[in-house]
Design a protein around this nucleic acid. Structure first.
Lengths: 215, 215
DNA sequence: CAATAATTTGACCGATTGGTAAACATTACA
DNA sequence: TGTAATGTTTACCAATCGGTCAAATTATTG
């Protein structure tokens, strides 16, 4: 009998790994577009190309699916920030961080939108993650930035709002992609907008955080 | 018989005006939190404090409610950009624009989230608005900025991505409010974060767009 | 006041929702 | 190969979905 749900003690069969991947891929499509409540299991099942009960064999509930996705995304999403190096050149570190975040917005827009949807509805599933690990990591990196300021390597600024601004400006190209395309129109239809954005943001942060000549 | 739906030729009774307002207020709560598909008429009715059929007496469908909301928000949302004055001082104009957008994020966060939700799902209801009036307005203001650059009043930059960055950084404090609060923690729980954000962004754009000393 | 129009409600509809039960099919492995 | 575990499907469930209807209630007006 099939009492044991998938993944009892460890990742068992090859087929489990494949199917779970296939489901999460489809779930990412649907959740990132319609949010948790707006997404339906039927739709995910259709996109995944399998029956609904089969889907529920691997993930017992809709929420389990969503949680699995969010957890995975959350980890990779914070990876660039972890790379923030206190020893490196401040301007170069910030530039590189902006570039990496922008690349993620370009290459993983669905992941960005999934996250945005979760935050928009109040982040009920990841509130502890935000208040715990995320806050801790940001606090740590904020201290790095503050040290740069103290050392006179960049202009005085609030490190938290600096990070917020980098997050928002880069993720904007994933979350508001439709609007960006509409405003830029046909002529900028290609992926060139990411290069333009990179150029603009690089200049903005380079000049905006440069020490004023007075010091 | 009550054949004539509300608002046949013109806004009739006082009670119609009141109830429609009451409904849109509740709808804003629910739509901004869960998006179009995630929101339910029952929930809106409950928040509005009236029965579902009564709600549907004023707005025939869920989509009609959503459209009415979006249209209203879209108009007021673009108001600050219209104020962008070609004759004014560039640095002051940009500073004032950032400040106004930030105030809107603080005072009308639900409106911002409603808009964000609509864009996230691909903006099916307002695609023409984006490609038409919005693009036109942005094109116009982009030309203003470009003129400033040509006149040597601000540093050379892509005007579109400048506007995108202002939109994203300011709306971030409405759309990602939960995350911002979580990261800042208890100590910054008050509304002080908006003042800090204003200070940071003002400095960033002032310095970031300043003409380099070489000219 | 009467009567007419505007508003509100409870009961209800078919479709869709998240999820289950059990029969059936397939795979892994002794 | 046999058999037990794993995987898949059909049929189904109660709850909720968006929306309708006709009756009841309230406001407006002559």
């Amino acid at each position: 009998m099939a009492i044991p749900r998938a993944a009892k003690t460890q990742r068992r069969t090859r087929i489990q790994e494949e199917k779970e991947e296939q489901i999460l891929e489809a779930a990412l499509d649907v959740f990132s577009l319609h949010g948790f409540r707006g997404a339906t299991i039927d739709q995910i099942a259709e996109v995944a190309g399998m029956s609904k009960p089969n889907l529920l064999y691997y993930f017992r509930t809709k929420e389990a699916m969503h949680k699995a996705l969010i957890d995975r995304v959350l980890f990779t999403w914070l990876e660039p920030l972890r790379g923030f190096d206190a020893e490196g050149n401040p301007a170069a570190e910030i530039r590189s961080y902006v570039r990496r975040k922008l690349e993620m917005a370009r290459d993983f827009p669905r992941e960005s939108r999934l996250f945005a949807n979760e935050i928009l509805r109040g982040a009920p599933l990841i509130m502890e993650e935000l208040q715990g690990p995320l806050k801790q990591l940001v606090d740590e990196k904020a201290e790095v930035i503050r040290a740069w300021v103290r050392a006179g390597k960049i202009a005085p600024c609030d490190p938290y709002h600096l990070l917020f601004s980098i997050w928002s400006t880069t993720q904007h190209y994933a979350d508001f992609d439709v609007q960006v395309r509409a405003v830029l129109g046909e002529n900028h239809a290609g992926e060139g907008r990411f290069e333009d954005a990179a150029r603009f943001l690089e200049a903005l942060y380079t000049e905006g955080l440069k020490m004023s000549s007075g010091d």
